[in-house]
Nucleic acid binder design. Structure first.
Length: 404
RNA sequence: GUGGCUGUAGCUCAAUUGGUUAGAGCACCGGUCUGUGGCACCGGGGGUUGCGGGUUCAAUCCCCGUCAGCCACCCCA
């Protein structure tokens, strides 16, 4: 017996491919509703496209090698550098805002576990060239609408949203020193997975005032009212007002449904390049990893050496989403069965069956038949097992019928 | 990369303290049933028990290594 797929890679048998196709069909359908247009880039990129953004450490998580032309290359682990390059190359020619989406297969060399493989398909939806908070709302609403299109409801999924600038101002107001902000982000990012006492000790080590430590440990429960009270009149007043609009815009885009959003300042999303709104979608049961994550990254294009253009986007992978849909009985792949199964008595020449198959196939029908003469009961059984919608008996005309 | 748990047919599982030729259901293939049966019955293919060593008269079972899966770290672009 030969071995299976490489660790972290998947064989897509027809059943699995139908499920993947279902996910991608919904992604594409909803993205188009929001007037995003599809693009793609190469799966293989120059290695330095990624090291430039993330440093050399990222090489440990890449599938990289030297190609036969001596180039350092890597399978793409993410789409952002590629799309940043593509947008930058035509920055002046593209109509703004640029609304693009893609569904690339991405690769990362990591130890696999549930919800994390070494390859996956990830929807990327991005907006370039607009600073307005309405764009942020549009993006979040699009992600939520995808959940709805899959049959998920606000009782299943929640959007936990934060804002880098508000979190920064909030922490400063608590007396956190500017130099300690980065370290505090790191602690907040791990709050859910760390005992409170350990987090407290780490914060103390960063020089965070004692009375601020408790508030930071429970920062996930901070309400917007509290944010307004604490920093609404500070230098961050403008950001707070902007966030208030965001909190109105998203429900407006969802037809008045305000149940999806939840302010959660503990959402940090790594320590990466986000500059404003950051958000993640979770199943409310807490059973799975984040379904989707994204935010605003206004400085990234410039830092990659491209155009200086505000940008925001999110990514949604097929693995966690698929696990969630299956667990909720919402994975409804399209049928792979044929439209028609042609049967005929053993006295009927195969050519006659083939001629009918040709006629129907020419008309766009999906047609299967026995590929040899066979007893009628055998053919009926095969037709039934195939799931074909209709069984047509060519032995005597007028004997067509539903299959099964 | 680190640690823990687990590996028997395509799937779900058996196999006496270590003891004949490793079994069953489902699935698959062939056949019977000429009547609408996702029936029934008969038959068949499919396993180096993940792989490699070791202990033993004898290993699916015990020990070591390795690979793979799951989980927790790391990381999450």
């Amino acid at each position: 017996m030969f071995k299976g797929a490489l660790p972290g890679f998947r064989d897509f048998y027809p059943q699995e491919l139908a499920e993947r196709a279902h996910i991608m069909r919904i992604w594409r359908e909803v993205a188009r509703r929001y007037a995003f247009v599809e693009y793609d880039g190469p799966p293989l990129e120059p290695l330095d496209l990624y090291t430039k953004k993330s440093g050399d450490e990222i090489v440990g998580q890449l599938y990289n090698f030297v190609d036969k032309g001596g180039r350092e290359v890597a399978l793409r682990p993410e789409m952002t550098p590629t799309v940043a390059r593509m947008v930058a190359a035509r920055a002046n020619a593209l109509r703004k805002p640029v609304r693009w989406f893609s569904m690339p297969q991405l690769f990362r060399y990591e130890r696999q576990q549930k919800g994390r493989l070494r390859e996956h398909y990830q929807l990327n939806v991005d907006l370039f060239g607009t600073s307005d908070i309405a764009a942020d709302a549009e993006l979040v609403a699009c992600a939520v609408d995808m959940m709805r299109a899959f049959g998920l409801e606000s009782s299943d999924v929640v959007v936990r949203v934060s804002d880098r600038r508000i979190l920064h101002a909030f922490l400063r107001s608590l007396g956190v020193a500017e130099e300690a902000i980065g370290g505090v982000y790191g602690v907040i990012d791990k709050l859910e997975r760390t005992p409170a006492q350990v987090s407290g000790e780490k914060l103390a080590a960063l020089g965070v005032p004692a009375q601020a430590i408790e508030r930071i440990i429970t920062i996930a429960s901070v309400t917007f009212d509290e944010v307004q009270a604490r920093i609404g009149a500070s230098s961050a007043a403008e950001q707070v007002e902007e966030f208030a609009r965001f909190l109105r815009y998203v429900p407006a885009l969802l037809g008045g449904d305000a149940r999806w959003l939840q302010l959660d300042l503990s959402i940090v999303r790594g320590l990466a390049y986000y500059t404003g709104i950051v958000f993640e979608l979770f199943d409310r049961s807490g059973e799975f990893r984040a379904i989707c994550g994204g935010g605003r990254y206004d400085n990234l294009l410039k830092s990659l050496g491209g155009a200086d253009m505000p940008a925001l986007g999110f990514g949604m992978g097929d693995v966690v989403l698929g696990e969630l849909l299956r667990s909720r009985g919402l994975m409804k792949p399209e049928s792979t069965a044929a439209d028609v199964w042609l049967g005929a008595a053993e006295s009927v020449p195969l050519e006659q069956v083939m001629a009918e198959a040709a006629r129907r196939r020419g008309a766009g029908e999906s047609v299967e038949y026995a590929l040899r003469t066979q007893s009628m009961s055998k053919q009926r059984k095969a037709a039934q097992a195939s799931g074909a919608r209709e069984f047509v008996d060519l032995s005597n005309d007028g004997n067509d019928g539903r299959n099964g």
